Amino acid sequence: MRKVLAILLPLLLLLTACGGTSTGKSAGAAEIFDTVKVSGGSDEEAPTVEFESPLDTSAAAAKTVAEGEGAEINEGEQIRVQLVALNAEDGAVLGDTYSQGEPQVLPMDESFKGQFPELYEVLIGTKVGSQVAFAAPAPEAPEGAPEGAPENPKQILVLKVISSEQPPPEPAVLSPEDVKKLDDEGRLPTFTFGENGAPEVTIPENEPSDDLVVKVLEEGDGEVLAEADTITANYTGWTYDGEKFDSSFDRGEPATFPLTGVITGWTKGLTGQKVGSKVLLVIPEPWAYPNATQGQPSGTLVFYVEITGKEAAQ
């Protein structure tokens, strides 16, 4: 969750349908993009990106390399972008979002600004349709990585801004009265259980709530969970079309994790519940994986959770 921004840690270059460069906004060591040329491509197809290699990515840099003709991007909006990542040493394509079908959504907020100040500076005030190049030093290997492990490649990313708009309203936690109303109307998922206690879900055909649904199926008699606690739980998760994507029951043991280290829907939905409780969570996308990367589920998610224990924060 919220790891969407990690896609940007390589560098980024804007793609253009006509090729060439532009004298648009820039920040950081933007002179590294002087030899970059892009050609072809569209909103659905990645462009060809060429440059004199290697590019020096030792300092962060961003530059608008082709001006769009749409509305200006403003603070607080969210933008949809397509990206292509290339090896800064030899220009080889490392990956793209075009082949994944859906553009990435990036929030123009303080969190993004803090992580990518050069890119944020260039994007704000740039027009929709623009191509923006971005570069940053390669991230260091994580602590504990085996000695001799290959280093992360130096990368550039090519980004095209597809659209910019105000973000949807922040979800809320649905009131118990509204949850009961949905339940009485048959508009909530239901569960059946196998011999090992593993749940199977039946999801109604209606559209899910835009807010977080928390329904206590069976209340426990243990301690109340605080947001700062680490909890142990058995769970299964499905997308709203009924596809299972994760289950501790399948692994044969419960999972342990801090409530502050999971998706927002878990943090808000399980804080205040008791150990021993069994809970249904229907989590809207903004509180699940709003910028789902490969391997993460997208859209509204359904979870069955059995809280088996907790460790209070020290």
Results as ranks from 00 to 15, higher is better:
Thr64Val: 15
Trp287Cys: 02
Glu147Cys: 02
Glu67Thr: 11
Val36Cys: 13
Ile32Trp: 01
Thr190Trp: 01
Ser26Lys: 13
Leu225Gly: 02
Gly91Ile: 08
Ala61Ser: 14
Glu110His: 02
Pro54Tyr: 10
Gln131His: 14
Gly91Gln: 15
Thr236Asn: 09
Ile32Met: 12
Ala172Phe: 00
Val302Ile: 12
Val132Gly: 02
Ala198Gln: 06
Gln155Tyr: 02
Glu306Arg: 13
Lys215Ala: 07
Glu121Leu: 04
Glu89Gly: 10
Gly252Val: 06
Lys268Glu: 11
Trp238Asp: 03
Arg80Gly: 07
Lys268Ile: 09
Glu223Phe: 00
Gly76Ile: 06
Gly222Asn: 10
Leu13Met: 05
Leu94Arg: 12
Leu217His: 06
Lys244Leu: 00
Val201Leu: 03
Ala312Asp: 13
Ala27Ser: 15
Leu13Gly: 11
Lys274His: 07
Gly129Ala: 13
Thr264Leu: 10
Phe249Ala: 09
Pro169Tyr: 08
Pro142Asp: 09
Val224Tyr: 00
Gly40Leu: 12
Ser164Trp: 05
Trp238His: 03
Ala62Tyr: 01
Ala92Ile: 07
Val275Cys: 06
Glu52Asp: 12
Gly261Glu: 08
Glu306Val: 04
Gly269Tyr: 02
Ala71Asn: 14
Leu106Val: 15
Leu217Val: 06
Gln78Val: 14
Ala228Lys: 11
Pro103Arg: 02
Asp210Arg: 07
Glu50Leu: 03
Pro139Met: 09
Thr260Met: 08
Asp229Val: 05
Ala141Gln: 15
Leu301Gln: 13
Gln155His: 10
Gly186Thr: 03
Gly252Thr: 04
Glu227Pro: 00
Ala27Met: 05
Gln78Trp: 01
Phe51Asn: 06
Asp246Gln: 07
Asp241Asn: 08
Pro167Ser: 11
Glu207Asn: 10
Leu13Cys: 05
Glu200Tyr: 00
Ala172Trp: 01
Leu86Thr: 04
Phe245Glu: 05
Ala312His: 11
Trp287His: 03
Ala228Cys: 05
Leu9Ser: 14
Val275Gly: 06
Gly70Ile: 07
Leu5Arg: 08
Lys63Gly: 14
Leu217Lys: 08
Glu45Tyr: 03
Leu94Ser: 12
Val105Asn: 01
Leu15Ala: 14
Thr300Ala: 11
Pro153Thr: 13
Leu106Ser: 08
Glu45Met: 11
Val275Asn: 09
Ala30Asn: 04
Val305Leu: 00
Glu177Ala: 12
Ser58Ala: 14
Pro142Leu: 11
Ser248Cys: 04
Glu147Ala: 12
Thr232Cys: 07
Glu52Ile: 09
Leu270Asn: 05
Ala288Thr: 03
Glu165Arg: 14
Lys113Arg: 06
Pro146Met: 14
Pro137Lys: 08
Phe191Tyr: 09
Tyr304His: 13
Leu212Met: 01
Glu50Arg: 12
Val161His: 07
Thr126Lys: 13
Ala288Ile: 01
Val132Gln: 04
Ser209His: 05
Gln294Phe: 00
Leu123Tyr: 00
Glu218Leu: 00
Gly70His: 06
Val214Ser: 09
Thr264Glu: 13
Ala59Lys: 15
Arg251Leu: 04
Tyr289Leu: 05
Ile73Gln: 02
Ser26Thr: 15
Ile156Pro: 09
Trp238Glu: 03
Pro290Ala: 05
Val105His: 03
Phe33Glu: 10
Thr236Gly: 10
Gly28Asp: 04
Ile7Lys: 05
Pro167Val: 11
Gln166Lys: 13
Glu151Gly: 07
Thr21Phe: 03
Gln100Arg: 13
Leu225Glu: 03
Gly272Val: 00
Thr202Lys: 01
Val279Ser: 01
Leu188Lys: 06
Pro117Arg: 04
